[in-house]
Design a protein around this nucleic acid. Sequence first.
RNA 1: GCCCACGUAGCUCAGGCGGUAGAGCAUCUCCUUGGUAAGGAGAAGGUCCCCGGUUCGAAUCCGGGCGUGGGCUCCA
Length: 593
Amino acid sequence: MAGYGDHEVSDDPLQILRHSTAHLLAAAVTELYPGVKYAIGPAIKEPPGFYYDFDFGKQVSDAELPAIESRMRRLANADIPYVHEVLPREQAIEEFRKRGQDYKLELIADKVSGDGVSVYRTGDFLDLCLGPHVRSTRDIKAFKLQRISGAYWRGDEKRPQLTRIYGTAWQTQRELDDYLKFLEEAEKRDHKKLGKDLKLFTVDDRVGPGLPLWLPDGATIRRELERFIVDEELMRGYLHVRTPDVARLDLYRQSGHAQLYAEYMYPPMRFEDGEELELRPVNCPHHIVVYQTELRSYRDLPLRIAEIGNNWRYERSGTLAGMNRVRAFALNDAHIFCTPEQLMDEVKGAIDLALYFSKVLGIDEFSYRLSTRDDVKDKWLGTEEQWEEAQAALAEALESMGQTYEVGKGEAAFYGPKIDFQVRDAHRREFTNSTVQVDFQLPQRFELEYVAEDGARKRPVMVHRGAAGSMERLFSYLIERYAGAFPTWLHPTQVVVTPIADAHNEYAQEVAARLRASRVRVEVDRRSERLDRKIRDAKLKKVPYVAVVGGKEVESGHVNAQNRAGEKVDMALESFVEMLTAEIAERRRPPQR
RNA sequence: GCCCACGUAGCUCAGGCGGUAGAGCAUCUCCUUGGUAAGGAGAAGGUCCCCGGUUCGAAUCCGGGCGUGGGCUCCA
């Protein structure tokens, strides 16, 4: 059941505690800032905590949080009960009007039906609220205010921007400390930090925001990922193509992107002769053109056209984040053209591929979201019947595979519903990686056809799918997933060979050459440093194997190698090569920490 | 785009209530040739994000940009 602020009413004790802490925050704020208007303040699951939105009528900086927090503590110690009342509508309106709480009045007008208005009192603080709450402010012991940000009233950027204060609250100090420690650890795994430390990618003002550069080691990982992805797709009957990053703007007028996706598209390049070229925000129109290079027979279907294609989207500056949200990215994209009868199998096949990639890459934790349309008519193409059919197909595919999912109303693409694979970063923020979408619109707009068994021209259905997501977002995920300690097959440097002294350089080079001959990425550390130092540096770069060679190894033709866990093996060079190449070929994942 | 914070050497950071800056690591040179996570010495390295303003003088104060981070909105 929805609460007065569109948030869930929960009887989970932790959610209740956090919700009550939000009230405590508002109570402190109303004491410290006379005339402040409070809007809504729910408990939230991710990140775990709560927020409260205020209209301070002035700028407020996070330097003011400590004062607010200590007022909260004072109120908590004062043992003030949370008192529930159901007021007659008129009385509730009068109470909030007296307090000048316009946002609450709006909520009562819009959200509260019937005569009884549920409110909670904490001392002088009065809030429109369904509860439930803790008994007393004294029940709130472990909390912390975290940050301040802007948030639009009722999520609408055309309405006033409020000041949102975020905090977290836990049953015990111990749990709070653990959570704060978790945040610190997440900071260390952050792909932006590791991307810099490990020299995987860089972002430079001169190139532009949201346009990261893949440095050699990052590019190596990407190349491995792309090889893996493309090889697997070829094995599964996809045809890989290469198409340009630009097209005439008319192509996107026909697809509908120029009309419905314009806010993400770069302004077209216009030339003297009237030519208009557009950086592509998506690959589908190009793939449709590929489809139409021949008259297709039902025998050709399903036709699976794939490409790791660059897409250009002008994302608003405030939304950019490292490699996770950028303005140019390479999507592991494919468009499957099939008959309506084949649709279900193709959707399942796409899900299965995404699952396979997830398994190999170590994406262990994800959830499905079935993204559907909402009722805003001009946002979507096509008829409601088509949408129903497509949504049913996706839901059925998931259900037949025994998967559970949540529904994301209004999250669909403009041409059809989709299944999104939601994953979480080191901070447990959720984002979409893979996606599978059913589309009846573009085939129609481009008048796609195939010749059916009976010789009639029929219209194919399209499935859009990004099985491994974009290379950029995938990369940011993997960096955080592995904290930089990538599986050996992905790591930019698979082995560092460390001669103990100059006398062993020659043998080290032989070892390296032997490994390279088996396509192992290897470096020889010939610096005139001590062994300890070389091992330390390799470990910091999270290199999977350090192969030490000294007098004994030269003598025996062995290497003395240690992995990232510090486990040492002493074996003949050929055995080492064999062990490594097997691990790489199987794309083995490192043991869990 | 909007809100809050931040922007000092390649990196991580000190410092500076207005008098053109410092450490550690990295880099370079030399010494050292050492068996499993930092050997020693020296050198070099900065228009203190950019542009204006105030001032005898701005890295420091003020204004405006740009960028980064966290949110809002949105999304692969």
